[in-house]
């Protein structure tokens, strides 16, 4: 029982360390600087040509000339 607990606690500490490193990396790379921009950016249609329906159109355009 106790040895299982020690193992689990050790595992917890490793996970926490990984989480901490992940967050520190995110902070360092500036992901928390702009809290509003990314939520707006998702609405931009810059992936438009990748949508299947559009793809047909773009391909058609490419073939045209």
């Amino acid at each position: 029982m106790t040895s299982t607990l020690i193992f689990l606690l050790g595992l917890t500490c490793i996970f926490l360390l990984l989480i901490g490193l992940g967050i520190f990396w995110a902070i360092k790379s500036g992901q928390f600087e702009d809290m509003e921009g990314p939520s707006q950016r998702i609405l931009m249609d810059d992936d438009d040509p990748l949508l299947p329906r559009r793809r047909v159109e773009t391909d058609a355009l490419k073939k045209a000339p």
């Binding site: 926490l16 901490g20 967050i23 520190f24 360092k28 928390f32």
Partner: peptide, 21 residues
Amino acid sequence: REKRHKKDLRRLAIAGISAAQ
């Protein structure tokens, strides 16, 4: 300001992780 902001966020993250656990 940016430097200090990042430091504050790191502190907050540490406190958050530890508080949860």
